[in-house]
């Protein structure tokens, strides 16, 4: 090798080293806010968290957020009950009837709906549900969250069910299974772990959604008596308390943020673990 080529190669090696350093720097820059947010939420949240946070409802000054914790759980459960079965059924239809005109149209709609800002979902649910029912309600909030969830679940199910090899379908059909049995007991079964993880991620996502709740679930000082009453949620309560001069309320907001982040992170990590375990197995 001539020295010229050698030095050119050395230069390229230096460039490679520099690029590695630069990309590592990008990673550090990307993760710095994550660390900062987690630290702030953990430190300030733990300091403010107490038993009364989970037992006392929102009060005049201080008190707890029991009704908001309860409201968030309620809304997410109800939204899941509406969104997940519908989403899985729709997604399975898309994958098993993937070439029908309806399927193509709906797949496009799912992409569009996934991109619609959730505040607009809130506006629509306000106009269609809240004004009709003459009442802000947990039900309206859950409906808005379900709409946010729906495209996520549909798309996960569709993508994962389509990834199931057709040879499995053919084998089932050859053995005399009907299409719906094939779809549910072969396709859905094979794709189930991934779909479940996808659903958990969708649930995690709506746990943090605030914008669609402002004009649907609204807020409540008390525990909601029914699903047809305004309902307090951790998300809206944090949003409200962020913009106050009261330090008690700031502390409460950090505590609520800690609870919310904990829920979301646990769901997130769990969902990923499940997928990974499946892949190892």
């Amino acid at each position: 090798m001539t020295p010229g080529i050698e030095s050119a190669y050395a230069k390229r090696k230096i460039a490679a080293r520099a690029a590695t350093v630069a990309s590592s720097a990008a990673v550090v820059l990307a993760l710095a806010p994550l660390v900062a947010i987690f630290l702030h939420v953990a430190v300030r949240g733990v300091r403010a968290l107490s038993v009364s946070f989970f037992t006392e409802p929102v009060g005049a000054r201080g008190a707890g957020m029991a009704n908001a914790v309860f409201g968030t759980i309620q809304l997410v459960l109800l939204a899941s009950a509406m969104g997940i079965p519908l989403g899985i059924a729709g997604g399975l239809y898309l994958s098993e009837c993937r070439h029908t005109r309806l399927a193509r149209a709906v797949r496009f709609c799912a992409d569009v709906l996934a991109g619609v800002p959730s505040i607009l979902v809130g506006v629509a649910v306000y106009a269609v549900v809240v004004v009709r029912m003459k009442q802000f309600s947990a039900f309206a909030g859950a409906a808005a969250l379900a709409i946010v969830m729906l495209p996520l679940v549909v798309r996960t199910t569709d993508v994962l069910a389509r990834a199931v090899p057709d040879s499995l379908r053919e084998a089932a059909l050859a053995l005399g299974a009907t299409r719906w049995r094939t779809a549910i007991f072969v396709v859905l079964r094979t794709a189930a772990p991934g779909i479940r993880s996808g659903c958990m991620l969708a649930v995690a996502r709506v746990c943090g959604e605030t914008a669609p709740l402002l004009f649907t679930a609204y807020n409540n000082r008390f525990f909601n008596d029914s699903l047809f009453d305004p309902t307090s949620t951790l998300q809206v309560q944090i949003f409200t308390y962020t913009m106050t001069p009261n330090e008690d309320w700031h502390a409460q907001a950090w505590a609520a943020a800690l609870v919310l982040v904990a829920i979301v992170v646990v769901l997130d990590v769990l969902a990923r673990r499940l997928v990974e375990r499946k892949e190892v197995a």
């Binding site: 947010i37 702030h40 959604e209 605030t210 962020t242 907001a253 982040v261 992170v265």
Partner: peptide, 13 residues
């Protein structure tokens, strides 16, 4: 995980 943090928590922070 950064994507999983709720928007309202980003607002607070």
């Amino acid at each position: 995980l950064l994507a999983a943090i709720p928007s309202v928590v980003y607002g607070l922070w």
